[in-house]
């Protein structure tokens, strides 16, 4: 029972916020198109639920997850290249750092020219936004192994492949899950920005169409869906991490 209450605690803040919001809007008598009350938003959400789910999962969720998956694969592979081919690091890092300082969102129109109005543009945007943190963290996770551990492995007859599998890769897992926690919301931003500028699907598109029609409750309803989706994703990553990574948190605890 006490445990159940403990799990409810994170939700308490939301409840307080919602109550204040609801009462505040009513008292201040805000027009609905400025700030709708939570109940109005929920009603709009319920009315548009099928639409919302469709846009969220068929478009936004799909492009986010695909973009993130691509970023994971490419980010880790690039990190591997940099870790194993030392001269590459000096060559590639300044380039990537420069590249990363370009605001990717500003590149979005260019991507539309290259990849069109469909899912590809959003996937590429999601990928571009999320690949860098994964790449950087993977370099640390794969590359920064205690020198003594590597010496020990070599003395025991460890081949580079075995050292990769049993030391580097496992060492990198918590770094990668950490990176995913940052990269997932970034990928989501990429998808939504893509939807803002091109096409007519996705949660971003719903937000935009709400804005066009001055349907502010719809804007909020879509935002709520996006937030729930982001929370869902981060929770999943956290669950994965708890399942696979028992050691990093343990050492932190000490």
């Amino acid at each position: 029972m006490i445990n159940a209450l403990k799990h409810l605690r994170p939700f308490l803040g939301f409840v307080v916020l919602l109550v204040v919001w609801q009462v505040g809007v009513r008292l201040a008598n805000f027009p609905e198109y400025i700030l709708p009350a939570p109940t109005v938003i929920l009603a709009r959400l319920w009315a548009t639920r099928n639409e919302q789910l469709y846009h969220l999962f068929v478009a936004t969720g799909f492009t986010t997850v695909v973009g993130l998956a691509l970023a994971l694969v490419v980010g880790v592979l690039m990190a591997l290249a940099v870790v194993y081919i030392k001269p590459l690091k000096a060559m590639i890092m300044p380039l990537l750092a420069a590249f990363n300082s370009i605001p990717k969102i500003a590149v979005a129109p260019l991507l539309v020219i290259w990849f069109g109005l469909g899912a590809e543009t959003k996937i590429v945007l999601a990928f571009l936004l999320s690949v860098f943190p994964i790449f950087v963290n993977s370099i640390t996770g794969l590359g920064e192994i205690e020198a003594d551990v590597l010496d020990l492995s070599r003395l025991s007859g460890g081949t580079p492949w075995r050292i990769f599998l049993k030391v580097r890769l496992i060492n990198a897992v918590p770094y990668i899950t950490d990176a995913l926690r940052i990269a997932f919301p970034l990928a989501l931003v990429g998808s939504i920005v893509g939807e803002f500028i091109a096409g007519n699907v996705g949660a971003g598109y719903l937000v935009l169409s709400g804005q066009f029609n001055l349907d502010t409750p719809l804007v909020f309803a879509a935002l709520l869906c996006i937030t729930l989706f982001a929370t869902l994703g981060i929770t999943l990553i956290g669950l994965l991490e708890n399942h696979f990574v028992t050691w990093k948190h343990s050492t932190r605890r000490r």
Partner: peptide, 16 residues
């Protein structure tokens, strides 16, 4: 290795 138990840490050189 922090992710390994006492036993599997002891057996690490064997795996290597």
């Amino acid at each position: 290795l922090p992710w390994r138990s006492v036993l599997t840490n002891v057996l690490f050189p064997i795996e290597m």
